[in-house]
Nucleic acid binder design. Structure first.
Lengths: 352, 352
DNA sequence: CTGAAAGCGCTTACAG
DNA sequence: CTGAAAGCGCTTACAG
């Protein structure tokens, strides 16, 4: 139970060696104004000599609070998808609030551009130290982040990227690859002569980059292999269960050789119900670890879910900002999430 | 840039309200001897009133170092499996060393009981604050942990459990379920009439709980469904490639209807090579995200790998101890890792 | 059984 | 441009 011996490579030691006060050392460490080039150089040399690494514990204890803002979609009744990211943010929050970090959460409506703009303005007024956001509305997000750049506020994109707008980091799925993986699964669970059906279900599919990229990836898999597998597709824009069922019934009646359905988003549990009512037992692959889908998976009505840990995405987004703000450490510019395959027999162990 | 306002629910405030010194408050918080029941009670009431939560930053900064010891198998030439856990420990280390935590790493030889005993004695002499271990040798591990209990040193098991020996936590795979999941996959990628072959490859299979439990799970899947699928099995105890190849060749010649091979451990890449030399294209399922296996996966010689993030297992093991020692927080007694399915099309995104 | 002081390694005003 | 002091919220000896 000996007392810790004092550290001999801290600011004190640097100050002693440089014959200055620790205040001056602090100024150099943080690149603040008001140090003569001469003493600055002298101190920097010593810092390198000692291989100085700041004690983050002491740093966080002594310094002012760090504020991180998050801007993500509201949990809607259309989908509970955004529950997990919110939980992920909460987890990050509870881990780092002890380190003198505060997280302010903002939400926008995915069907309402203006809500995105309004919330982003609110955030800017608060001048946070960093921002995590889902840039669903590209033009508006570009305007927003332009202002961030101007104010020197770092920002991280999650779930979808704007490659042209340089961010601290993008954390999210690789959509093409996840569609490609679906193709891979299909090649295992169907015969070459079996046809498959792609289902895009959304009010405006054209604007849903997610859906388009996944379909591309899926088709890419078969194209790359010169496969002649027949791929049917329907775009369903009226998203009430009845309309969906009608459209599915029509296609299946027309194409009897369809053995597998691939739903390009989280709406797969609705399709599962349709198939049940139509009394068709086909293989069903879809996306996302959300409650409704898990229920269908358990019941055996969905065969495979492809998931990309949205909770962890958000958690990592916050942590990335924290690490950058506190440690000024290097940040991976793009972080693709793993592409997980979930079945009835491993969902119990999955952590979203 | 305002200065932080002082916290009004810290030890100081408690001391002020209780009319004692902060030293006494500290004694109560840590349940140390030497406080009269009266003042203890008084202080405890105030602690509850204020809903006091210690500032861990300050706590770690002021207090002595925490020492965690880890005891895991050496990376051997038999398998590179233990590389990942070692990396996981390193990652945890680099994250928490700033919090005044030191990790001492010890290793034993999986083929040498004595090395386990020797290392465990070394650890005990150092009296660490917590221990993470892989209890491969059950009797020896029980003895070791008995002493830990006596010395009041918490320990966490990883990779394999000793349910009868109460530990702070067990973090590892659910072996039965992972075999079960393999059965699930098989049901999708073969027809009912196709036969499958289980391959247990190890010098002494009887002692390898891992292998036995996975086989059980695999068979369980078919039993639970009343399936009549034919399941052949070979135990291969001579583990050089030549012997392995000979045994496989023999079985495949005898049973022409075998369409899929299930290897119950990380030796699956060796089997992949054998099949290649025998010029047999069968579906191959095995375990573990190790270099050799990934190569075979990429080449298309392995179809599915089942993985359980051994690196994260070790990372979480260390972090569990850290959280317990610093925050005295509640610990999950059993933490099963997710069971991941890896194919040629998603391994690039996997984080082991 | 209790208190007063020093210290952990930083940052933050303030003074000059 | 620089220094000296106070403080962040705890823990650790030491003294009585």
């Amino acid at each position: 139970m000996t007392k810790k011996e004092p550290r001999l490579s801290g600011v004190k030691e640097i100050a002693r060696r440089a014959n200055v006060s620790i205040g001056t050392v602090d100024r150099v460490i943080h690149n603040r104004y008001g140090v003569s080039p001469k003493t600055r150089d002298k101190i920097n040399v010593i810092i390198r000599e000692l291989d100085y690494e700041p004690n983050l514990l002491a740093r966080r204890l002594a310094s002012r609070v760090i504020r991180i803002a998050t801007l993500i979609p509201l949990v809607s009744d259309e989908t509970s998808f955004w529950e997990a990211p919110l939980l992920g943010i909460g987890q990050a929050e509870s881990e780092i609030k002890q380190y003198n970090v505060v997280i302010d959460k903002y939400f926008f409506d995915q069907n309402d551009k203006d809500s995105f703009v309004k919330q982003s303005q609110k955030i800017l007024r608060k001048k946070p130290d960093g921002i995590l956001m889902v840039p669903d509305f590209i033009q508006e997000a570009v305007k927003f982040t332009d202002k961030c750049k101007h104010l020197n506020i770092p920002y991280v994109f999650m779930d979808s990227d704007i490659p042209d707008q340089p961010s601290l980091s993008y954390i999210g799925p690789n959509l093409y690859s996840s569609g490609y993986l679906a193709g891979n699964l299909v090649s295992y669970v169907t015969r070459e002569k079996d046809a498959v059906l792609i289902l895009n279900i959304s009010k405006d599919i054209e604007k849903q980059n997610h859906i388009l990229r996944k379909e591309e990836g899926f088709r890419g898999y078969f194209k790359d292999r010169g496969s002649k597998k027949r791929i049917e597709k329907i775009d369903i824009k009226r998203v009430d269960p009845k309309s969906i069922e009608k459209e599915i019934a029509a296609v299946l009646t027309k194409h009897k050789d369809i053995k597998l359905l691939f739903v390009t988003n989280s709406r797969v549990s609705v399709v599962a119900s349709c198939l049940k009512r139509l009394d068709k037992k086909l293989i069903l692959i879809g996306y996302d670890f959300i409650r409704e889908n898990i229920e269908s998976l358990k019941a055996g009505d969905i065969d495979f879910l492809i998931c990309q840990k949205p909770g962890e995405q958000a958690y990592k987004g916050v942590m990335t900002l924290y690490k950058f703000l506190v440690q000024k450490s290097e940040i991976e510019q793009v972080l693709f999430m793993p592409i997980d395959i979930i079945t009835k027999e491993n969902y119990q162990f999955y952590r979203n």
